Every structure is written in structure tokens, then in C-alpha cells.
Computed example of a mutant assay.
Amino acid sequence: MDIHHFLALPHRFRWGGVGGDDCMTFPASWALRCVGIDPAEDLRGTYRARDEAHAIVERYGGELAFMDGHLLKIGAKRVQHPETGDIGLIRAMTGETAADRIEAKIGAIRFGPLWVCIHPAGIRATPAEHVAAWRLPA
């Protein structure tokens, strides 16, 4: 699937990745569209709130270990120089209101020089520093 077509689809924020996506299932949905395998299949529907999502990620040893484990099992490879369509773990400001905004590590999809992620207000493309990036199998 083309990244433009994927981003044009209706997207909505939902913790747990059922009926929408959160910051970690959003790039997993992209992987599903591209390679036909959902790296988040084992997690979808198992949580419904931020604290539950964070507890799952911590059980894996943090965001990097969480994403690495899920993406490597579908054949994704780590890359140093991400290109459009690659999945990344980025540093970004999160929170639904200005009062609860914090810097966090979230999943995103490379789109030109930007990273696209999902937020309660919808899809956002933003410049960001990536912690790690993965290229999906062809």
C-alpha cells in the first residue's frame, strides 16, 4: 500500500488498537497493510487506557525493546537512515491537553522529512528525533 493512501484513510485514536489506533498500534497497522502481518496482533484489545498500555510496554523492557521485538518477528530490519514508509520510535510531545503534555517515545511512520503519528486529535506529521527505525520487508 502507498503511504499516501494509508494516511488518507480515516484514522481515530483508540487505546488498544481496536476500532482505531494508539501510538504503538498505528505503525503496526501500517505494517499490516504493507506486509499482511500485524506485529501488534497479540496486543490488540488487551488494554483500554494509557496506564495499561504503559504497563505492557514496561513488561517488554521499555519502548525500544517492545518495538524491536514486535517488528523483528515480522522480518523488519533496523536502519540508520529512515526513508518514507519506515517505522520509527521517536521522541515527541504527548498529552491530550497542554497541562498533561510530556515528552515520550512513540511509534511513528516516516513521511519525507517528517514522522507521522496518531494523537487523540488525529494524525500529525512532525519533525522529530528518532531513537530507532525499522524497514519493513519487501
Rank of each mutant, 00 (worst) to 15 (best):
H70M: 14
L71D: 03
L71M: 14
L72S: 15
L72D: 09
K73R: 15
K73H: 04
K73I: 01
G75R: 08
G75M: 10
A76Q: 09
A76Y: 04
R78V: 12
R78C: 02
V79L: 08
Q80A: 09
E83H: 08
E83G: 06
E83F: 00
E83A: 13
E83V: 00
T84M: 03
T84F: 04
T84S: 13
T84A: 06
T84D: 04
G85C: 05
G85A: 05
G85Y: 05
G85R: 01
D86V: 00
D86Y: 10
I87T: 14
I87N: 05
G88I: 10
G88K: 00
G88C: 12
L89S: 02
L89P: 11
L89E: 03
L89C: 09
L89F: 05
L89D: 07
I90A: 00
I90T: 07
R91L: 12
R91Y: 07
A92G: 09
A92F: 09
A92Y: 06
M93A: 10
M93W: 10
M93E: 07
M93F: 03
M93Y: 07
T94A: 12
T94H: 04
T94L: 08
G95E: 06
G95V: 11
G95M: 08
E96V: 15
E96R: 15
E96M: 12
T97V: 11
T97M: 02
A98G: 07
A99E: 15
D100V: 13
D100W: 09
R101L: 08
R101Y: 06
R101A: 09
R101T: 14
I102V: 13
E103C: 02
E103V: 11
E103G: 08
A104T: 10
A104C: 05
K105E: 10
I106R: 11
I106Y: 07
I106M: 07
I106E: 01
G107S: 11
